[in-house]
Amino acid sequence: MYIVYLFVAALMGIGIYAVVMKDNILKKVIGLGIIGHGVHVLLVNIGHVEGGLIPIITSENIAYLGMHSVDPIPQALVLTSIVIDFGITVLALSIIVMIYKHIHSLSSKDVGKMKG
């Protein structure tokens, strides 16, 4: 069980490292994506139940399903969050394309000096 949390922490650590330390702005955006994936794994893991059943009611399992089913809500949340991350990534990449047209560089040092 704890290995999942370790995995989440590792993903987030890699992502934060990329966003904070990397010079290339494309790598920063990739880092944002990795942080997002870490959060998604955390969310899915919250809905996990050891040996859980599918949360669909049938005539046989109606008596005990409530106790033993996995939680379906985090998956809905993760889907929403994936779409939001997709939107942010698309916007970031299009901004990067426009930045590249202006300064012909992807280094964040050059982006910081864009105003001239």
Binding site: H102, I103, V111, M114, K115
Partner: peptide, 11 residues
Amino acid sequence: RHALEGAFKYL
């Protein structure tokens, strides 16, 4: 240039 730099930092 101003707009893109600000937008990228903000994003």
